[in-house]
Design a protein around this nucleic acid. Structure first.
Length: 430
RNA sequence: GUGGGCGUAGCUCAGUCGGUUAGAGCGCCAGGUUGUGGCCCUGGAGGUCGCGGGUUCGAAUCCCGUCGCUCACCCCA
């Protein structure tokens, strides 16, 4: 059986050079931005004990675990998210690290689920987290970093928007509306669909959650309200005002940092993960054709609940699959071809030694150099140089070498010149 | 997990009332000769028509299954 008979697994990608170029383009942008915000990179094991996830992760994630029994009989799982590993690593070192801690990672994550557009069984996800700071300034910082990571790739406020909310605010509003705690999750689920479903459908769902008719109408208005309207409507509720103040600070800081047009309050935003305790946000493409590009929030209780240090924390995850599709759709994906600087034309094998020395010298100058790997006609070599898009051809022929030079030719203008061999081979710069 | 659409050369696709060695464009390779490319000309390689089974004298074309892709649902990273 040849290797071609065995297909790659469903939901797993093969990165041919064009795809790999886009992936590296994205990773490089992420790393540049992370560095600018003072984040240091870490990584954990791709394979973890199954119980790391079954113990504390949500039901949904457990149901999609890519798990199996290893040859030693141990139940293991490919990591579906980074947070548990991150929590363990942070807990091991947090005591000795200055706070706040700023760490980022680009793990490959896995889950066993039906692949579809923007969602595979494997993806890379930028994770950025801040640990040890509860001030709203940290919330603004992490959201700014997320937006910057996208802006670095050419996306601006016309392409993307961050929807920002706060679990405490929405929770306080529900309580003020007389919705008991045990029904909050059901209401969140409905609000989350506010922009995708009809009012009738939403109302029916609220009715099913035993919400009274008058309250239903008021709840369904929430996603359309601005922060000021919320403040006015619930002006006498201390808990709501306090949460609104906090959120206001986050948005205000974002504005000062230059992201005012990128972020807006949206009470309809309710992130799926249950461990968020405060600020939550998602970044969406404006058209809404694709899903969220990024999601995150504050999870002040998670580290302690995982048995680690008791420190406030917040962060986000940004996947590469949807992002890559978005960049391609907007024609922001880079040209995958490697730009060749010099193509060395070796007139005959008699000059081969000189040609190789010239190539080595140019490569020491960090130029991208290619030449034919067998003897071929000069015309053929120029054709190849042109085909490869080389910026310059360097002809190494008997007449030139006898004069102690090589001939250069700019491939786009056709202009020719000469370089002294002696200068090139033992130039002053090396 | 549920339902719909699709699956022919590296790429984009033609090719069905089932009928001789399955085509085009682009790309790739080699020539158009021995010191100069982009155009052009000529030639060539490359497909068990996703895979398996069935119907038929005969299937890329019809039927079933399967795998993959894709869209929607579900749900989320």
């Amino acid at each position: 059986m040849s290797s071609e008979d065995v297909q790659s697994l469903a939901g797993f990608r093969e990165f041919f050079p064009a795809e790999f170029a886009l992936r590296q383009h994205i990773f490089a942008a992420w790393r540049r931005v992370a560095a600018r915000y003072g984040f240091v990179e870490y990584d954990g094991p791709p394979l973890e004990p199954l119980e790391l996830y079954t113990r504390k992760s949500g039901e949904e994630i457990v149901g999609q675990l890519y798990s199996f029994t290893d040859r030693g009989g141990r139940e293991v799982a490919l990591r579906p998210e980074m947070t548990p590993s991150f929590a363990r690593m942070i807990s091991a070192r947090a005591g000795g690290l200055p706070k706040p801690i700023r760490w980022f990672s680009i793990p490959q994550l896995f889950r066993f689920e039906r692949p579809q557009r923007g969602r595979l069984r494997e993806h890379f996800q930028l994770n950025m987290d801040i640990v040890g700071e509860s001030d709203p300034l940290a919330d603004a910082e992490i959201i700014a970093a997320a937006l910057d990571a996208l802006r670095e790739l050419g996306l601006d406020e016309t392409h993307i928007v961050a929807r920002v909310s706060d679990r405490r605010l929405v929770s306080a509003i529900l309580t003020a509306e007389g919705v008991s705690d045990d029904r909050h999750l059901a209401v969140y689920a409905v609000l989350d669909k506010a922009d995708r479903e009809t009012p009738e459908w939403l109302s029916e769902r609220l009715e099913a959650a035993t919400i009274e008719e008058g309250t239903r109408a008021r709840l369904l208005e929430l996603p359309t309200l601005g922060l000021e309207e919320v403040r006015l409507r619930y002006a006498r509720d201390e808990a709501i005002l306090a949460a609104a103040d906090s959120l206001d600070l986050v948005l205000s800081h974002l504005g000062s940092a230059g992201f005012g047009d990128y972020a807006r309050f949206d009470a309809g935003l309710v992130r799926g993960l249950a461990y968020y305790t405060g600020t939550v946000f998602e970044i969406w493409e404006r058209s809404g054709d694709l899903r969220a590009v990024c999601g995150g929030g504050r999870y002040d209780d998670l580290l302690a609940s995982l048995g680690g240090v008791d420190l406030p924390a917040l962060g986000f995850g940004m996947g590469d699959v949807v992002l890559a599709e978005l960049l391609r759709d907007l024609e922001l994906a880079p040209d995958a071809t490697l730009e060749i600087d010099d193509f060395i034309v070796c007139v005959s094998d008699d000059q081969r030694g000189t040609a190789l020395a010239v190539g080595a010298a140019l490569r020491r100058q960090d130029r991208r150099v290619i030449y034919d790997l067998r003897e071929r006609g000069v015309g053929r070599q120029f054709k190849t140089a042109n085909q490869l898009g080389a910026a310059r051809a360097i002809v190494v022929g008997p007449d030139d070498v006898a004069r102690g030079v090589v001939v250069t030719k700019d491939m786009s203008s056709g202009d020719t010149g000469e370089i002294e061999l002696g200068e090139l081979l033992d130039g002053p710069d090396e």
